[in-house]
Each structure stands twice: as structure tokens, then as C-alpha cells.
Amino acid sequence: MDYHFGPGTLPLLVSMPHVGTDIPDDIAATMTPAARVLADTDWHLRELYGFLRDLGASTLAARWSRYVIDLNRPPENTNLYPGQDTTGLCPLDTFAREPLYPPGGAPGDEEVRRRLALYWQPYHDRLRAELDRLLHVHGKVVLWEAHSIASHVPRFFEGKLPDLNFGTADGASCDGALTDIVTALAQVDGRYTVAVNGRFKGGHITRFYGKPERGVHALQLEMCQSTYMDEAPPFAYREDLAERVQPLLRQMLAAAADWAGQ
């Protein structure tokens, strides 16, 4: 199976497109040792969000690494942040600019099309189908895009990121009332720094599927990995840190589902 999927009963779907750590053998054979470190993975999010099944949310998580193909990039590979550096649909280097392929070994157009069909499309087909199912049942649904990133990535931003970075495509992907509800909970908690539509405004999934006028409200949360894990290899999960942030995550997601169910 190309993804991990669990249907729920709430008007809430949590998508994790960057948690995958598998690389098909034929692709891995063409890549550099840097690729096998998988440094840019959104590590441990399935564990961090492990309460979702009890909550009643639908979940969709990637199997394949973003180094195979990035599920949160548009299929035509347009830059989501014009004028800013970013990695592409089939990344050629890591966030630290380490090459993922030896010279001359980058995937060509035919290989990119093959990966789109084999690894990108199945995730999006399931995402679309589950959104449609939840819309049919509830009439309104929240799509929560769960992401995480190292707190310092000089390639993309200066200094340390805020702990919790919410993105709604500058308000286009979800009702402002939903954004206000979840961000207020984070701010009242007081232990984590918060940004809204700052460096991260939401990727392709948030922007493409978030259609408030059609009942789909998409919101991305990009968390600093320092809130729940060690950011250096071997990227260990920190239960002590995770237990601090999990109640807030659960509170925000429950509030989002309640809002959609009203």
C-alpha cells in the first residue's frame, strides 16, 4: 500500500504527506548516501498524533519519502513561494543542500511522470475520496495538514522558527473563524510561540483542497521538531516533550471538529 489510511467519524481529516521513510529499491540505487539519512522527514508525527483514532478523526499518512516525490507539491512543479528558495516535486537536494543524486543522475521528465503516477497520484486519490465522503456525511469538513521541520533551516529562513506555524494560504483555504479558534487555543496555552501565515502559508494540499465555499476548510500546522523530538540524528522521539504538546494538539483538533460539526 502506498499510504496508511484510517477512516473516522468526525468531519476531520488529518493528512501527513511528509512522514514517509520508504524509498523503492530501484530509486534508492540511483541516490547518494545523503538520501538514506532521510533528514527532511516529518519524523514521528503518526506517533505524536496517535490520539486521532480515539478522537474519531480520519487519517492519511504517506509511506514513501518526500525524496521519491513530494506529495505536497503541485504536479506541474510550480514554486509555491515565488522568489524564494524551495525544494521541488522530485527534490534534487536536501534542505542542507546535499545532493540526492550523483552528477547526471537526476530524474528526467519521463521518470518524474512515472513517479507521479505510481507514488503521488494514489495519495491524492485517497485524499479526495475521503474528503468527498466526509462532505457527503457532514456537509463541512476540516482538512488538517500535519507537518514538522527542524527549528533552524538557514536555507529557508533566518533564525529559529516559531514553534507552531499555521498556514491558510493567507486566509483563502479556510474560514477565518476556524483559524481564530485553533490559534487562540495555542496562544492561551502560552508555552509555544505561534505564527499565522508567516514563512509557511500552506503547501499544495492546503491550497488546492481548501475550498471554504465548497465546505472544505484546510489548515496547515508546521511544528518545530524541537517541540517533541531530537532534531539531530538519529532523530529520536522525546516522550517527555511530546507529552507536553499532545494535549494542546488534541484540544485544537477537537475544537476544529466541533466547529465543522456545528
Rank of each mutant, 00 (worst) to 15 (best):
F5A: 10
G6R: 14
P7R: 14
G8A: 09
G8Q: 13
T9I: 08
P11K: 03
P11C: 06
L12I: 11
L12P: 13
L13M: 02
S15H: 14
M16G: 07
G20R: 04
D22C: 03
I23L: 01
P24E: 15
P24A: 15
D25V: 07
D25M: 01
T30G: 10
M31R: 12
P33D: 11
A34H: 15
A34P: 00
A34W: 13
A35E: 09
R36W: 02
A39E: 15
A39V: 07
D42V: 03
D42R: 02
E47A: 05
Y49R: 07
L52V: 08
R53P: 13
D54H: 14
A57Y: 07
S58V: 11
L60N: 07
L60W: 03
W64M: 08
W64I: 02
S65N: 02
R66H: 08
N72S: 08
P75L: 04
E76F: 13
G83D: 11
L92V: 11
A96M: 09
R97F: 07
R97Y: 04
E98P: 05
P99F: 04
P99L: 10
G104S: 10
G104K: 06
G108P: 05
D109S: 12
E111K: 09
V112I: 15
V112N: 03
R114I: 00
R114K: 06
R115M: 09
L116D: 10
A117K: 04
A117Y: 01
Y119T: 10
Y123M: 08
H124A: 06
D125F: 00
D132K: 09
L134W: 02
L135D: 12
H136G: 13
H138W: 13
W144G: 06
A146Q: 01
A146P: 09
S148A: 14
S151V: 09
V153S: 05
V153W: 09
F157Q: 09
K160Q: 11
L161Y: 02
L161D: 01
P162S: 14
F166T: 08
F166L: 14
A169F: 14
C174T: 12
T179R: 14
V182E: 04
V182K: 02
A186K: 06
Q187D: 06
Q187M: 12
G190V: 09
R191N: 05
T193N: 04
V194Q: 03
V196W: 11
V196C: 09
G198T: 01
R199Q: 06
K201E: 08
K201Q: 14
H204M: 09
T206I: 03
G210N: 12
P212L: 03
E213D: 14
R214H: 13
H217C: 02
L219H: 10
E222Q: 09
Y228L: 12
D230P: 00
P233E: 15
P233G: 12
Y237K: 09
E243D: 10
E243S: 12
L249C: 07
R250Y: 11
M252L: 06
D258S: 14
W259N: 14
G261K: 07
G261W: 03
Q262C: 13
